[in-house]
């Protein structure tokens, strides 16, 4: 089946080439010309990727085998010692624990809430574009700005903070949201700021998924006597959203691994709630300037993210034919 198609395309290409040559006599635009344009367009981005992504990764790999305090051009080779130190470092391990707690909150919450939001917005009959934009708008806000608003206005610990004002109406004492470790109230601002910022984005993904579901499926379900509501959602909508759901989960988990801004700006580099990136930033780029251990930690983290993503893709079957 596929062979004739290839042939016909090749023929197509050949005849089109003929036409072009006939139209523009004397102008030969062969493979060399195409390659030139390819590099003109792609070149700057490839260069950027090389210089700003691959080179630092390679350099980081080099640094991870050296003792590199206050220098990016170290001379003392230490082999795997930095890796061993990092794997024994209880702060690094506990930062992985912090991330796990964060992911346990944020991934399911984002998934359920953005799906719910998508279903609601998709069913709205009037001003649908308006609602879609309203919920999507926070995505455009920076994490740093949102964190500052959360820290200074909504969740500050004094009586004139928004959250404490509301609690005050019910006669509840002020809560120092970001400074209280038992109970760990700081999770509330940390989780809510990310929800506010990213729900809209995942909602849009789900809406796109919902709009791809053929209405005939719902009609058929109706004819077969499926009750609208839960039954239709469970047996039609959710299975049809499988590809979108998996994408949302994977993107969400990777985004959670990369958590930095809201932690750094809301509570700073504190040992009871710092995700891996905040800890590694503190070691290598903060005052400590220990680039060797920092690089080793970053590479360990990269390997963990890779393994988890691959596992997740394997379990959910992401990228399988038909998705």
């Amino acid at each position: 089946m596929s062979a004739p198609v290839t042939t016909s395309r090749a023929e197509d290409a050949a005849t089109a080439g003929e036409r072009r040559r006939r139209r523009r006599p004397g102008r030969q635009k062969g493979i060399a010309g195409n390659a030139l344009w390819f590099w003109i367009f792609v070149g700057p981005f490839v260069l950027g990727l090389l210089v700003f992504s691959y080179l630092p990764i390679i350099w980081s790999l080099v640094l991870s085998f050296f003792e590199a305090y206050n220098t990016a051009t170290p001379s003392k080779f230490v082999g795997l010692q930095n890796y061993i130190d990092m794997l024994k470092d209880h702060n690094f391990l506990s930062s992985l624990g912090t991330f796990t707690i964060f992911a346990v909150f944020i991934v399911p919450l984002t998934f359920i809430l953005s799906l719910a939001l998508a279903l609601l917005v998709n069913q709205v009959k009037i001003a649908r574009a308006f609602f879609r934009s309203v919920f999507f708008l926070p995505t455009a806000c920076s994490y740093v700005v949102a964190s500052l608003i959360w820290r200074l206005s909504i969740f500050n610990g004094v009586r004139f903070g928004l959250a404490n004002t509301i609690l005050g109406w019910f006669g509840i004492d002020n809560i120092a949201w970001l400074s209280t470790v038992s109970p760990p109230w700081y999770w509330l601002p940390i989780v809510t700021v990310r929800l506010w910022l990213q729900l809209g984005f995942y909602m849009i993904l789900f809406i796109a998924g919902l709009q791809r579901i053929s209405p005939t499926l719902y009609e058929a379900a109706y004819v077969d006597g499926a009750k609208p509501g839960w039954q239709v959602f469970r047996y039609i909508t959710l299975p049809q959203l499988r590809a979108t759901s998996i994408a949302v989960l994977i993107l969400n988990l990777i985004a959670a691994y990369q958590a930095f801004d809201e932690f750094y700006n809301l509570i700073g580099n504190v040992n009871y709630a710092r995700p891996p990136l905040v800890y590694l930033y503190g070691i290598s780029l903060g005052s400590i300037q220990d680039l060797g251990h920092g690089s080793a930690g970053a590479l360990i983290l990269a390997v963990i993210i890779m393994i988890v993503t691959l596992l997740q893709a394997r379990i959910f079957g992401f990228g399988k034919a038909g998705d």
Binding site: Y69, N70, T71, A72, L285, G286, S287, Q289
Partner: peptide
């Protein structure tokens, strides 16, 4: 602090700067 640390890694940083001394600055 962070900006200064990265500035001091190369010769693109300051000639004269304010900070607090720690032995690491001398050793490196």
């Amino acid at each position: 602090g962070t900006k200064l640390s990265s500035g001091l890694l190369s010769n693109k940083g300051p000639d004269v700067f304010e900070s607090q001394l720690n032995i690491g600055m001398v050793k490196s």
